[in-house]
């Protein structure tokens, strides 16, 4: 499952990209850090013998989604937000403790999962052909559902906009 050096480097990059996304005050910077993070994860997918997913990750996530984000940020001019000063203190402390606690607990408990003997790399044929076969044979029903979800999302956007227009007309 990859060389430890590669893993550590990629992991470090991923974590720092995440930290950067969280901490930067400029939303555009956040989006760019997110792209870096997604790309790192895409490399992990390659390492993990998932070339198809890796490509999809780069096209859909790093390409479409983050571009959509950037587009909206720039559209709204919401890149620089004023620093709000509401009840931050307790919320911050509790949030940090809770997330740290969760991460610690998960790592301590689950990192020893399994006996460390992964299946050999050859055991997994993850070519686009194999994925396609699986998707359109065993998972054809969920796949159709997914299309339905996308359709509903699309319709909701149209309805949303139509209502807006109607309101403006009225």
């Amino acid at each position: 499952m990859g060389h430890p050096i590669v893993f550590l480097i990629l992991a470090t990059v991923a974590v720092f990209a995440a930290i950067g996304m969280l901490t930067s005050r400029n939303a555009v910077h956040s989006a760019l850090y997110l792209v870096l993070n997604f790309c790192t994860v895409a490399v992990f997918y390659l390492v993990l013998n998932a070339p198809f997913i890796s490509m999809v990750q780069i096209t859909v996530y790093a390409g479409a989604i983050v571009v959509l984000f950037l587009f909206v940020i720039m559209l709204l001019g919401a890149d620089q937000l004023p620093k709000a000063s509401s009840n931050g203190g307790l919320q911050y402390i509790l949030a940090i403790f809770a997330t740290a606690g969760l991460a610690t607990a998960l790592i301590l408990q689950l990192s020893g999962f399994g006996d460390g003997t992964a299946k050999p790399e050859s055991a997994l044929d993850a070519s686009p052909e194999a994925i396609g076969t699986l998707l359109f044979q065993d998972y054809v029903f969920p796949f159709e559902i997914t299309s339905l979800i996308l359709l509903v999302a699309m319709m909701s956007l149209i309805v949303f906009k139509a209502q807006k227009r109607k309101k403006q007309d009225g």
Binding site: Q91, L94, A98, G101, L102, A105, L106
Partner: peptide, 12 residues
Amino acid sequence: LGLFLGVVGLVL
């Protein structure tokens, strides 16, 4: 946060 604390509690 409340929700999350609950989740953390459950996970723990």
